[in-house]
Design a protein around this nucleic acid. Sequence first.
DNA 1: CACAGCTATCGACCAACGGTCAACAGTAGT
DNA 2: ACTACTGTTGACCGTTGGTCGATAGCTGTG
Lengths: 191, 191
Amino acid sequence: MSEPAYTRLDVEERRRRLLELGTDLFARHDYDALSMAAIAREAGISKALLYHYFPSKQAYFVATLEQKAEELAGRIAPDPDLAPAEQLATSLDAFLGWVEENGDAYAKLVRGAGAVPEVREVMEEVRAATAALIMAGLPGPETPARRAAVRAWLWFMDGAILDWLEHRDLTREQLGTLVLRALEGALGEPH
Amino acid sequence: MSEPAYTRLDVEERRRRLLELGTDLFARHDYDALSMAAIAREAGISKALLYHYFPSKQAYFVATLEQKAEELAGRIAPDPDLAPAEQLATSLDAFLGWVEENGDAYAKLVRGAGAVPEVREVMEEVRAATAALIMAGLPGPETPARRAAVRAWLWFMDGAILDWLEHRDLTREQLGTLVLRALEGALGEPH
DNA sequence: CACAGCTATCGACCAACGGTCAACAGTAGT
DNA sequence: ACTACTGTTGACCGTTGGTCGATAGCTGTG
């Protein structure tokens, strides 16, 4: 006659739901402003259960990020049949398309990265991997100046994206042209 | 016969000491990893006194930053007698010199900016002001593309500086050349 | 249909944090 | 020696991330 005190769910299903909810919540609120108690409340479960599925708040956040990161990686994977310059242009456009869909979350991430050390590590790994990819498509050896140029250019991209999301007064093509010109400038020989 | 329970200090002297200590501690530890209790312990005072001088942890952190920001502003103020291009080169070099001295703290700031909203505001104000300064020295009107280029370039600078501090295999001149070339590329006409 | 075992789930608890407050204790002026 | 001012403190609060033993919902078996 009395309703069950809680609904029992399959482990994978519960985990899937929690990840989905986390992705949504972390995109809308700041990491610090979102308490584990609030997340649990939103999920309709106890805080203890949340900790049963994820060992810490950081780990939970990182797990939601990794999900998105995999999706992103799949979409911007370069086509090996293309010439390096074409690969870069294509992947860049795919990346900007992804940013258009996940802009809020990405902006929050770029702006508030360092708060969680573990997150910073993930981002730096992604940056390093991307830098290596670009480096590989470049003619000539990797000099300190070129390494610095590529790495700094990734920051340029983030800055450009933030400005883009804020003002939205450039087309995706214009933005792509802008960042590519910056890369050429950074890599170009002194004149 | 018994020693005094505490040493009474002049207000300005106490405040000065706390700011100095804060600058040092925040440069060495992450914001989140540094508790107000620990700071008070380090200062040899009670936590309550710390809160008597600064209304919140954020405000305390911002106060230590503003001190450094003023010092920095004084050192990179452009010489109005110079041509815009020379102004930029000179201020840039002065900035890089300052970074060489305060590298650790600056890197921590750039990497972990978003943790404290109030700090992010300060940084965005500084960025906006710097962008306006550069814009003013540029010939021609401010278009959306140019605004985005300058703002993104400031991120490029931060990225380049992080790489520089990490590897230290570029001279200050090489780094200056690199970032200036990137700016030219970002601002240049399509070709 | 009972019942036993597995485990998903919960309520209650803890230490540490940022922050507050009324009361105390140094110090200077008389 | 007393008073008044104020720099300073210990004790306290609500909230947070995180932990733990106990509970209650399923599922397979007799």
